[in-house]
């Protein structure tokens, strides 16, 4: 129903599906666009691309992001805060087999 105003809603799947194979966008740009974080970042990013000569050096030395990582860099302080928040804890508890007695009920949740 809201498909026409879809620009306003981030993380719409059809948008991702459309951009996925649009090779004009780099994966980073796709994610920025998908999550709608790009609205004001757009120009900055393009400026970065246009720069040449000396400015490129700094970009190349951004080592944290230049290698393939399989464990992403987490901000652990933020994570710690997040996972002490009751709200998040409650939402996450749903993802766990929530029987209180250990050693029992492993089978019970299998068919969920």
């Amino acid at each position: 129903a809201k498909s026409l105003t879809g620009r306003k809603k981030p993380y719409r799947l059809s948008e991702l599906a459309r951009m996925m194979y649009n090779l004009d966008l780099s994966p980073a740009e796709v994610i920025a666009k998908w999550s709608h974080k790009d609205d004001n970042l757009d120009e900055d990013a393009e400026d970065g691309e246009e720069d040449d000569g000396f400015f490129k050096k700094a970009e190349a030395e951004d080592a944290s992001n230049s290698e393939d990582r399989s464990v992403p860099v987490f901000n652990y302080e933020a994570l710690e805060e997040k996972w002490q928040d009751e709200h998040y804890l409650e939402t996450l508890k749903k993802r766990f087999a929530s029987d209180r007695k250990s050693g029992q009920g492993e089978k019970d949740n299998d068919d969920e």
Binding site: V71, F74, Y76, L79, E80, K82, W83, Y88, T91, L92, R95
Partner: peptide, 12 residues
């Protein structure tokens, strides 16, 4: 602790 929080984040 970091590993535990990371695990929670990944599960979430």
């Amino acid at each position: 602790k970091q590993c535990a929080y990371q695990l929670l984040e990944i599960i979430s």
